[in-house]
């Protein structure tokens, strides 16, 4: 798919680059492209702020996120409780700050795990073909045939909840799509002569997969991975609502949205604030993924 456009666009560009000026520092170019678009910068800033928030949560939060105070329950936003308090008087603002840690931990770990496993499976299926391809892809098909939510519920239910179980359940659900995507992209990359050249020079299977096929198949997957982080955070929210996600006193955005829905008319901030946090996270990661994809695209080298 992307390969066709590649061969289609390169000849024209290559002639332009024939007498190209001395190459500027590659890293600088990537940074320049990435920071040249406002949306990417906004996404990047959001992600950086979220990560910093997670790391420095104790300094940013105004209250202990676990401290209950029944006299101050369900308060509206005030100068003391910036975003109000929940049904047991915990400070919503502080819980959102600490919830960043939980959300990012689950988002990164689950997506990372499913991406590594799924991509390795997809790469192996595409590279070896034959029986390996048949076994891996039928396994992926079987996983996809189960409705995702049932699979996740089953694992989380059997595991009994808690952060590690949530990571495993949501990560497991992400393997099949990653595997299928990778396999399709790797198969199209395999059509290129440089893969043939690699075989002709006696490259090992590992070297072929990791240096030739993977780098060319990976960029389109980057967007899927960043979106996956947002999806996992949403999935965690669903699990928490059903009581098999992150276990109660631990602050999680999804859990907070669901806690607050009972008071939606009376105190909308309880659900709205963590909802906005989730939205910002998803938006930030999506924009950042788009930006990285454009920035590392070698077809743009020398053009921008």
């Amino acid at each position: 798919m992307s390969d066709n456009t590649e061969t289609g666009t390169t000849p024209a560009d290559a002639t332009g680059a024939a007498g190209a000026p001395p190459k500027a520092n590659e890293f600088k170019r990537v940074v320049r492209v990435f920071f040249g678009r406002t949306l990417y910068v906004i996404g990047f800033v959001i992600v950086v702020i979220l990560i910093l928030t997670a790391i420095f949560a104790p300094f940013i939060a105004t209250h202990d996120p676990y401290e209950t105070n029944l006299r101050e329950k369900l308060e509206q936003p005030s100068s003391r409780h910036w975003l109000g308090t929940d049904s047991v008087g915990r400070d919503t603002y502080s819980r959102i700050i600490y919830g960043t840690q939980v959300s990012l931990l689950i988002g990164f770990s689950a997506v990372f795990a499913s991406a590594v496993v799924g991509m390795l499976m997809g790469l192996a299926a595409a590279h070896f073909g034959g029986i390996v391809f048949a076994l891996i892809m039928r396994f992926a098909d079987a996983l996809m045939a189960l409705p995702g939510i049932i699979l996740v519920l089953l694992i989380a239910g059997l595991g009994g909840g808690g952060i590690p179980v949530v990571i495993f359940a949501l990560g497991f659900g992400g393997i099949a799509p990653q595997c299928r995507m990778m396999c399709g992209l790797a198969l199209s990359v395999k059509q290129n002569d440089y893969v043939l050249a690699g075989r002709a020079m006696g490259m090992s299977n590992w070297r072929m997969m990791l240096t030739q096929i993977f780098p060319n198949a990976f960029p389109p997957l980057m967007v899927g991975i960043t979106m996956g982080i947002g999806g996992v955070v949403l999935g965690e929210a669903g699990l928490s609502f059903l009581g098999i996600g992150v276990m109660p006193p631990v602050p999680s955005w999804g859990g907070m949205v669901n806690d607050g829905q009972r008071y939606l008319l009376h105190n909308p901030m309880l659900s709205l604030a963590p909802g906005v946090a989730i939205m910002l996270l998803v938006f930030g990661f999506n924009m950042m993924g788009d930006g990285i994809r454009d920035a590392v695209d070698p077809k743009l080298r020398g053009v921008i």
Binding site: T7, T10, P11, N192, D193
Partner: peptide, 24 residues
């Protein structure tokens, strides 16, 4: 067992655009 053989044979391909890995 082909590896020693492979170092003793070179291959040049038709399409100079498709035969080089664009990311290396």
């Amino acid at each position: 067992k082909l590896k020693p053989l492979r170092s003793n044979m070179g291959a040049i391909f038709q399409d100079p655009f498709g035969s080089l890995n664009p990311r290396q």
